[in-house]
Design a protein around this nucleic acid. Structure first.
Lengths: 203, 203
DNA sequence: TTTCGATATATCGAACTGATATGATAGTTG
DNA sequence: CAACTATCATATCAGTTCGATATATCGAAA
């Protein structure tokens, strides 16, 4: 899931790891900060799979005092080496590859990898990259799984063995699911009105 | 977090692992099914720490055909051994220990371990075991963190670089937080009216 | 000037997921 | 009645994620 989110960010423009975290939060709606212990390994996996590559390893303000006698090759080696312990700032800027773009399109549209609410929200935040029919497909799948969930939640809330607090938790869960369904419905309504506007003489 | 939830279930009565999963879902509001890959290791941890113990290992319908020549000791060994490959049903029923009850009370009231929404809901489902002041404390802490979150979410939603879909995701997140705050407020109101009813002549 | 907060990468252990394996028991159906 | 299926029940594994921690740079303020 993180890999899809990161690929989605890189579809727009290049990013480095530290930047990725902020965007996962404020552009993809992944609420709390995702830990770097997830992000850096995910970037490493994507790189290993050839879906992203390091575009630039910038070492800001390379001191011109000591590099005077270094050949260009040795200087570039120095700036590419990013093992900890190096004495200058390293900043690996990642870029999505053509294969990465393919994989992104495939993953984003794949209904089999749609697991939970966070996953769905993240995909909707990237929905501009989806074909309209794929968008509607994901929305309808999500809607039906939420309806199932609503039935379960209502059942749990009506369990008369629950004390006041536990019952309140269950009722709140029901309200949460209802809110989610209402949201999906507004999104579906928008999709349908767009289809009508774009293809009024269809049929 | 799982350990606290399991201890909470065992406060009420003994359970075996398979049963725990259903109750995490329908009594503690931990929505989707928690995987057994979480539950069994958690039970093993709790047992290792001495917070729970195996009350009974029941082997329903021990075949009386082959056990005729077995001594009582060997028969009990057989029913206690639960390594895979055994040819009879094993069912480990867990019981909370006195130290487990202490640890439960401590963990449940500890505001430092209150991380996310799921954690909070789970604690509220167990709130009958909390002292009223601890209950109000947790509610107020949750409220203030939700208010902070609301501010952030509103800020993200007002980012004008977002496309329609991403903005919709952010606005939905805002509504979710608002619903959560409204819930907390009803719970706080209930707590306060209870305090007035129980101690009307305070001050 | 040095100290502080933000920027930036990386690693580690522990926890959780989803998949998979194994087998017991109970019901049902051809 | 035998075979099949669903549910009950425990367990392990690889892979993912979290939270904490370490390290180092940079700009700004005290």
């Amino acid at each position: 899931m993180l890999e899809l989110a990161i690929l989605g960010l890189l579809m727009d423009r290049d990013h480095h790891g530290y930047e990725v975290r902020a965007h996962l939060r404020d552009r993809l709606g992944l609420g709390a900060n995702i830990s770097f212990g997830s992000i850096y390994p995910a970037l490493a996996r994507l790189e290993r799979e050839g879906l992203v590559e390091v575009a630039v390893t910038s070492a800001t303000k390379v001191s011109t005092l000591s590099t005077g006698s270094l050949s260009g090759e040795r200087a570039s080696l120095r700036s590419l080496r990013v093992t900890p312990g190096l004495n200058r700032k390293s900043r690996k800027v990642y870029q999505i590859t053509p294969r990465g773009r393919e994989e992104f399109a495939h993953l984003l549209a794949d209904p089999a990898t749609l697991n939970d609410g966070k996953n769905f929200s993240m995909r909707m935040a990237l929905a501009k990259y989806l074909a309209p029919n794929a968008r509607v497909g994901l929305l309808e799948q999500r809607r039906s799984s939420l309806c199932a969930r609503l039935g379960e939640a209502r059942q749990y809330a009506s369990n008369d063995e629950l004390d006041t607090y536990a019952r309140s938790v269950m009722e709140h869960a029901v309200q949460g699911v209802e809110l989610d369904i209402a949201w999906i419905d507004t999104l579906l309504a928008t999709e349908r009105s767009n289809q009508i506007n774009l293809a009024p003489e269809a049929n």
